[in-house]
Design a protein around this nucleic acid. Structure first.
Length: 451
RNA sequence: GUGGUUGUAGUUCAGUUGGUUAGAACGCCUGAUUGUGGUUCAGGAGGUCGCCGGUUCAAGUCCGGUCUUCCACCCCA
């Protein structure tokens, strides 16, 4: 028999893992709701015409395509086959697994525009798929937790999402993170001033690698693009200067020499944060941040853990015309996406999962014989009725075995039933951590377990 | 997609220049303990050495392919 396995880059989640993932989702969802977002869901599959071309050429390759049902070769010819995989898949596949939640959301907004009241705040927590090569913190199936505000240009949105990011990580008790901020227009101004107009994307890619490959390597990449390295060197020096955001923005504006709404928006963003002096913001202006997704047009965000080696755990930004690709122009929006799987990895490594986030019953009822089991049925029902998560050991086996079971599952309390207990209606409740046993009536036990 | 890396018991790993019945620790099962788990002690079960093929008298060990893991690049949650 073939050895059982699951596809590359996918994972099974055991009981504790699942419970902890649910724990994270609950926290994020609670914050989303607190900020006034409403949930939507979109299908796992989209038509390829919706997905293709939205993530760049690279992205098209990473899409999982779904083979057409039935005789998928029906409408193909030898010529199609000879044209190679890039053309051929068009003939045999018309659906694909979603690559992110933002593009399906744009499609949803355009399709349902007449039923949507703008500004529309939606959240969406669903898995996405990418045919990437798996690595640490990189999976082929992973969950995104998105919150988007669409149909408004208000600069309050940028501040609001920053508050949301901080609240989410606060509720997860994750403190070691940094929110990096930049602006797409500023990046374009930087490229233009360095003689790289029209080559903004490769410029951004080079700049984004600064902390990885260093100043020299970035400059030589700029030279390779026929850019002006002496201007870029000024950028790189400025990026690492320990000065406040306002003067940093002003100095960059001086270097690039162009009037640009990006500078104004960044200035007003930081001014907006100052409206909340009691908040402990972990925000950093970083002109080298250049998120790849091409639909961003305004401010961009990226959240990175500072103590755990891991890529970004949250990212997003403003897009002026996301729905434009589906024919609805002039609808500005802004969104962020939390990466559940990476947040999980960071919390695990930082040992931040609370003891309580593991599930299982709070009390196990164990029994010595048939009579006790029958009594236990009623007892466990009464406990559950009182809102206590309780379980009854289902088989009539030795008491050691039942105790071991409770111990292995980490069940905090065990209640034992024998003939004496049935007669007296008084039960020993054992605390499995301290080992102490308290005898009490059912009513008092309910009070003890459910304060 | 390119280059590298990993795979031996449920888990983490040993396994000599190819050479008899492939080991350890932890875990698991049974008992010491027929109304009390976690500690201790005694015993026990468990492996087509990822898969396919090749070289050889002989392959866990060498060679090729394949799958998987992790890493770098690319890109990204």
């Amino acid at each position: 028999m073939e050895k059982l396995s699951i596809p590359k880059g996918t994972r099974d989640f055991g009981q504790i893992e699942s419970f902890r993932r649910k724990f994270i989702i609950d926290k994020i969802q609670k914050e989303f709701i607190k900020y006034g977002f409403s949930p939507i869901e979109t299908p796992t599959m989209e038509n390829l015409s919706v997905l293709m071309g939205k993530y760049g050429e690279e992205g098209d390759q990473l899409l999982f395509k779904v083979l057409n049902s039935g005789d998928f070769l029906k409408n193909t010819t030898q010529k199609d086959y000879e044209s190679g995989h890039k053309g051929f898949f068009n003939k045999i596949s018309e659906k694909g697994l979603r690559y992110d939640l933002t593009v399906p959301f744009a499609r949803y907004v355009v399709m349902n525009q007449h039923n949507i009241t703008f500004p529309f705040k939606r959240y969406q927590i669903q898995p996405v798929w990418r045919a990437d090569r798996p690595q640490r913190g990189r999976y082929r199936e992973f969950y995104q937790c998105d919150a988007d505000i669409i149909g408004t240009r208000s600069s309050w949105n940028e501040v609001e999402l920053t508050l949301l990011i901080h609240d989410v990580f606060k509720s997860l008790e994750l403190e070691d993170f940094i929110v990096k901020i930049n602006h797409r227009e500023v990046l374009f101004a930087m490229a233009a001033a360095a003689d790289l107009k029209g080559k903004e994307i490769p410029f951004c890619v080079a700049l984004d690698k600064l902390d990885k490959i260093g100043t020299e390597a970035v400059l030589s990449e700029v030279e390779g693009l026929n850019g002006n390295p002496s201007i870029v060197l000024k950028y790189l020096k400025l990026i690492n200067e320990p000065i406040d955001e306002k003067s940093k923005i002003e100095r960059l504006a001086k270097i690039t020499g162009a009037q640009n709404k990006g500078y104004e928006e960044l200035l007003s963003f930081f001014k907006g944060l100052n409206e909340f002096p009691a908040r402990n913001f972990k925000v950093e202006l970083d002109f080298s941040l250049a998120r790849g997704l091409s639909y961003y047009t305004g401010m961009i965000y990226e959240v990175k853990p500072t103590k755990v080696k891991m890529g970004s755990i949250c990212g997003g930004g403003r897009y002026d015309d996301l729905t434009g690709m589906f024919g609805l122009n002039g609808v500005s929006g802004i969104g962020i996406s939390f990466g559940l799987d990476r947040i999980y990895d960071v919390l695990l490594e930082s040992q931040l999962f609370p003891e309580t986030a593991k599930g299982g019953p709070q009390v196990l009822v164990i029994h010595l014989d048939e009579m006790s089991f029958k009594h236990g049925i009623q007892l466990v029902d009464a406990l559950r009725d009182a809102g206590i998560s309780a379980d009854l050991y289902p088989d009539n086996v030795k008491i050691q075995k039942q105790m071991t079971y409770a111990n292995k599952l980490g069940i905090p309390f065990v209640l034992t039933i024998g003939s004496d207990e049935i007669a007296q209606e008084n039960y020993p409740l054992k605390n499995m951590v301290s080992g102490e046993t308290t005898r009490a009536s059912l009513q008092n036990i309910i009070k003890l377990l459910n304060p």
